[in-house]
Design a protein around this nucleic acid. Structure first.
Ligand SMILES: [Mn+2]
Ligand SMILES: [Mn+2]
Ligand SMILES: [Mn+2]
Ligand SMILES: [Mn+2]
Lengths: 225, 225
DNA sequence: TAAGAAATTTAGTTGTGTCTAAATTGTATA
DNA sequence: TATACAATTTAGACACAACTAAATTTCTTA
């Protein structure tokens, strides 16, 4: 009852949070794939998390897992650490936005609540990380998100970039080159039906750029009024 | 050959470094006591560190352990991390000097060489931590120490505090109250033979204070010319 | 110098988190 | 709806780093 969670347990809970947000539940094979752990090992950990006191996940054999309120709290705790650390490294130590993830992945398990609070204060209690991902506040509440994929932006609509999937550094480096980051203003010029690319005008730039579909679906924007 | 060290291994190497500096070698029971691990478990780890490739310690049954050059390098790496982190927390995040140790103890194993370098740069490549302990430089070289215990300071001799044992927070809080920290100037007024206390004049203060022997042997000073 | 005490090592066990191989369950489709 | 394939679980093993209990070695001192 209420024993501190291991790094492995915390990583599983974060992964279950991510997958069940996206697909309603986290399947064994999805977890295995994301965590780069064999499915048999995942099954073992799911059984353990479900039998913890208090239970951290709801798990039925062959039906995947979802977080209990306790499990969700633990996941959000790590997500808050992760995103605060990413922003801290970027703002205070000059890391590029494609370099912060790996460092945060280790540090999130090692910092104290005291350090979390001091970093948050030093950053002015921010609500977005360098990739635009929302940072849960001190009570683990997260701001509501209104942004949608750039691929769904209608032509002629001015919009502002809010968030970028932070999962592969090469996308981040590419966007950096293009001059796209959260808060950049953009307008869709045209969706090109044959190759599914997007022609995009970036505010303050001469000529529009062509965005491949992979990038357009990993970039999230809000309409400007 | 050349596999990254576990946190447990790094902690043992740091402990062996500390004990062999102080006593020439690290005995099993001293390690067990310092690390709060049972002696039988220490024996197991010593065998493992000695048989590593390359060997990290020299170990003969019943004779304790000393570091090999590889082991010493690994220990200094962690010591550099630890002390840089302590100073960073103190200088950049407003931690008191008695609060930094515990946080650094966990973070030292989690930061990358990149982060080490960025923190060092942000701090101006410092050579002392908040307790005055020397920080090994990028090549793991440490400045030569000239300070000696305050308990050995002759009466009337002006001296400057350089370093304080950082092992228990209560001593640090006590010294804070007294207004003693690295760079504070002091003069011994008298060594009191019966109770082994020291009467000490602190620069900028009205009246001398009486220092118990425990504190006087954990404070290190340099003579002023 | 021979106990007796203290320190250390050996032997065997445990919990955690991974793995491989084999068995089972669920799903899609022919 | 039977079968084949995919997903998942079970079973058994392993590495790591701790533990306890017992055996052994070394040190101290009478
Ligand atoms: Mn937290
Ligand atoms: Mn991020
Ligand atoms: Mn380093
Ligand atoms: Mn220190």
């Amino acid at each position: 009852m209420k024993v501190p969670l291991s790094q492995a347990e915390q990583d599983y809970l974060k992964a279950i949070y991510r997958l069940s947000n996206r697909y309603g539940r986290a399947a064994t094979s999805q977890l295995a794939n994301w965590l780069e752990i064999k499915p048999a090992s995942v099954t073992g950990m799911l059984r353990k998390l479900a039998q913890a006191d208090p239970p951290l996940i709801a798990y039925k054999k062959h039906k995947g897992a979802t977080l209990t309120p306790d499990g969700e709290r633990a996941a959000l705790e790590m997500i808050r650490h992760h995103r605060l650390i990413e922003l801290y490294l970027h703002e205070k130590l000059g890391y590029a936005w494609d370099e912060v993830h790996e460092e945060a992945e280790r540090l999130e398990h090692a910092i104290s609540e005291e350090m979390e609070a001091r970093m948050a204060a030093a950053l002015g209690h921010p609500c977005r990380d360098p990739h635009g991902d929302p940072i849960p506040d001190h009570n683990l509440e997260m701001i509501a998100l209104s942004e949608f994929p750039l691929s769904e932006l209608g032509p002629g609509q001015p919009a502002v970039v809010r968030r970028v999937r932070d999962e592969e550094p090469s996308l981040l480096q590419y966007l950096d080159l293009l001059g796209i980051r959260p808060s950049t203003q953009v307008t869709a010029v045209a969706h090109n039906k044959h190759d599914h690319t997007l022609t995009l005008q970036i505010a303050g730039q001469e000529r529009p750029v062509v965005i491949p579909p992979r990038a357009a679906s990993e970039l999230f924007v809000d309409l400007m009024e």
